[in-house]
Design a protein around this nucleic acid. Structure first.
Lengths: 343, 343
DNA sequence: ACAGTGTCAGACAACGTTGTCATGTAGGAG
DNA sequence: CTCCTACATGACAACGTTGTCTGACACTGT
């Protein structure tokens, strides 16, 4: 492995000049610059990340903090983040932060903190459910690392937030059901204390209000974004003597669960009931019928957050960050919605 | 941020002694050890990863190399790897290596090589399809990084391989179909040049042979492990005038595709045809009917590979590595298999 | 002619660890 | 009592970069 010193000797310059060339700093004449570049190439020189970060106090690492239970949603974000990291010369490190509440995991939390402190990421990407936790993002800010949150609505100063307008999207989706003639619509909530759950439900409620449709509280079921909770809630809703004609599940996995619950009762969507999901995750087109849902540009969440993060510490101005980026969603109509059975 | 020097001063010892304590090296008296530990704790001391790796030439990083197109299978491995990394104080870095063949991506390949060389991972985890590429693993060996491969059969010296016996698993799965009375069975292959495709098909063939059942070559369809190729192949098989009564898809995504293809033709599994998948990925229990499949302990692949890797460079002996670990699979019977329609 | 300014290059120290070597002490064998 | 070994500690250099400082040179405007 060759070092800067080797390159410097070959090019007949000082190490500092090599450093300047490698980092594209100004004040090196073009001729010299070319000579150094050639020498570096000849030797196959590659700067040492550890030496660089030791001296410059930049790690060129971006950490993505996720939950133990990972989902397709999170992985898509990761894919986007990785794309940008790789093309900008950063490393994407994935870390698991155990539930922030719950004492027994204190040991792991401690370990996590050490991990972060030892490696000093230049920035972190927070995905739900952590994105919703104010204290988590503040903790990182206190440590001096830039933070980007994904999928949450509210934003403080200095924290980049990337999201879609979930409220509007939920409105559109509910509107679609109403347009098809549905009047009794069930709703399956996601994990509580997450803005995704709240926003989607708010949008749903608002549209019912707009059309003067009553919201039967017994048609609102709890859920946790997982398939099994969708099956359970779906079975309860569809098994009633007065079942809703349509169900809005707060994400696709739960919507897939509703479809299966229906099958178990001999009910087939969209003939016997309609259902919509949210996210357009991989499962959405693999169910039968394929799910009508809202596509979030999840991969783009990753790229935008990462790019924003990198910009914030590569641009000198302190006025970076604190941005709120709202991306476009797309209503994807597939086959799970039709008019109610006896219309 | 406090350094070793701070700790040393507080404890009244030399930095080297602190280093010894931090790294659990021998030759420090218990009393001193305790004093140093207390001092470190008081100061909230956390060693600097970059300084440590600069000096010791160990990065404490494990890179997982994956394809641009990531799958649930890969993510499960990642989850397992992360678990071990985090508890052993390593970082898991995810990297994308663009297709190894295909010239237009040369730029990215170059970038990738730099990335690896700059960060000098202590080890890398190769997942399919890269695990099957001999030159990729040799490249890493030449760079002096330990390699663990996942899901492949053959193994050289010095490379850890983690897998299940795919051949046996495929035999068992095919046997199940035969036991149910199926005689005409279709097969949908995965990506070519991958051992997963070959092993599963070999097992399938062998069982047919054992029962003196003819293998109709027109019942063997190409595929690429993706859902859409399953839909396509399923449509072709089930649309025939003489359709097979059962279909073995080389993975779950394609099996889910077959189910959907059936629905489109008005055929419902397992009443009209049986189908099995492979992997027991997330989708397997979210389809209707739920898939009968083989569970690979994918998460465990990740933990075993990572643990093996870490052991190989933490244990001094040079006789590490080159191991082959065969883990247990599990046949998961769900609802997609029954007797053939007109038996 | 001279100070002032902008450009270019190098010398040197510093980042925070760990490896090497030297030194000191205690205990057991001869 | 001496020698040897095993244990215990510290001094110092080194890892490969980048930040700071200093200096040389070439302009410009007075």
């Amino acid at each position: 492995m060759s070092t800067m010193l080797d390159v410097a000797k070959l090019a007949g310059v000082s190490v500092k000049t090599v450093s300047r060339v490698i980092n594209n700093e100004p004040y090196v004449q073009d001729a010299l610059r070319a000579r150094v570049k050639a020498a570096a190439k000849d030797l196959g020189y590659i700067p040492s990340a550890s030496a660089r970060s030791l001296r410059s106090r930049r790690s060129y690492q971006i950490h993505m903090i996720s939950h133990i239970i990972t989902t397709p949603y999170v992985h898509a974000i990761q894919a986007g983040a990785m794309q940008v990291c790789q093309s900008d010369g950063y490393q994407l490190v994935v870390s698991v932060l155990p539930d922030i509440d719950g004492d027994p995991v204190d040991v792991m939390r401690e370990r996590f903190a050490r991990h972060i402190a030892a490696n000093k990421p230049d920035g972190v990407i927070l995905v739900p459910p952590f994105a919703d936790l104010e204290d988590v993002s503040h903790w990182f800010e206190d440590q001096g690392v830039a933070v980007a949150k994904i999928g949450v609505r509210s934003t403080d100063h200095s924290i980049l937030a990337v999201q879609i307008d979930e409220y509007e999207a939920a409105r559109e989706l509910t509107g679609l059901l109403v347009e098809h003639g549905h009047r009794r619509i069930g709703f399956i909530r996601g994990r509580e204390n997450e803005s995704a759950t709240e926003e989607r439900f708010r949008g749903f409620q608002a549209v019912l209000d707009d059309h003067n449709l009553p919201l039967d509280p017994s048609l609102v079921m709890p859920g946790n974004f997982h398939f099994s909770s969708g099956v359970e809630a779906g079975a309860r809703l569809l098994g009633r003597s007065d079942p809703p004609t349509a169900i809005f599940a707060a994400n696709d996995d739960m919507a897939a669960g509703v479809i299966v619950a229906g099958h178990k009762l001999g009910l087939i969507a969209p003939r016997d009931f309609s259902v919509v999901g949210f996210d357009d995750s991989a499962i959405a087109e693999k169910t039968w019928p394929a799910l009508t849902t809202v596509r979030q540009p999840v991969l783009e969440f990753g790229t935008v957050a990462t790019a924003g993060l990198i910009r914030s510490f590569e641009g000198e101005g302190p006025e970076n960050g604190g941005e709120r980026r709202v991306l476009d969603y797309l209503l994807v109509s597939r086959d799970s919605v039709a008019a109610p059975p006896r219309c």
